[in-house]
Amino acid sequence: MTTDSIPVRAADAPPETVRMKRGATPSGARRRRLFAHPRAGRQHHAGPLAYILLGIAALFSLFPLYWTMVAASTDNTRVTQTPPPFLPGPHLLENLGKAWQDAALGKAMLNSLIVAGVIALSTVLFATLAGFAFAKLRFKGRNILLMLVIGTMLVPPQLGVVPLFMMMTELGLGQKLPAVIFPTLVSAVGVFFMRQYLSEALPDELVEAGRVDGAHSLRIFWSIVLPIARPPMAVLFMITFVHAWNDFFWPFIVLDMSNPTVPVALTQLSAGYVRDQSLIMAGALLGTLPLLAMFIIFGRQIVGGIMQGAVKG
């Protein structure tokens, strides 16, 4: 353990600090096990009861998604009968196709991809920049500014929707994607997360060496900080992406149906003149698929990332 240089009283420290302590190694080398603690956890083998309970929990987690697929693959008559269907029917592709058109999901997905992509990239970039400054650079007012960053976490952006809406309308950005992107270009949690990581994972000597070589701050950031910060940057990217993709309140207010993100487009399926239940479910399934695929491919990394840093918007 090489983290002893930073005094942290485990009981009082916030979870981030505790977790960061384990999450970071000064060399920046990737660890095999993301969350193993040499002397902790995993004390007992699981008994059959534990497996049964976990099985039930997994069932509860996955069943609604499975059933979405089932409902999306039947027709309207079957899905509204009792007992409800439990096995997939033959209409899946047909319904997916119709829902794709009805809810303009193609455009919505492209929009969501742009929104979530830009937000995630800029959040990561700005959080790493600021995190580096707060962790390793000395400047007047640093501590006060850092406290300010933390303080902003307590101000949920949703409270400003009314003036924000008026602002965007005045700027001519109503119903346009920048209106969704701008307010979430940065994240306080992200800044704090990167700061915690870098203050432990980035040795002062490396930065100093860079200075001796005559590198300016941006150069140091690019060639020394970024390589070391890559693992937490990836984590921050994935989590920010998921949150931005699923964000609802503000996009719902500022966008409309001609230019929606996925969650906004999905509301269109349930409101207004009734569509087939099976079509609604097909739309819900389509809207979920991209993130679901991401979770299937990167599940392990995302789980590891969430356990490393409690990032929740």
Binding site: M257, S258, G272, Y273
Partner: peptide, 9 residues
């Protein structure tokens, strides 16, 4: 562009 719901529209 056809919105399903008149209220939203």
């Amino acid at each position: 562009d056809v919105a399903g719901d008149e209220q939203t529209y």
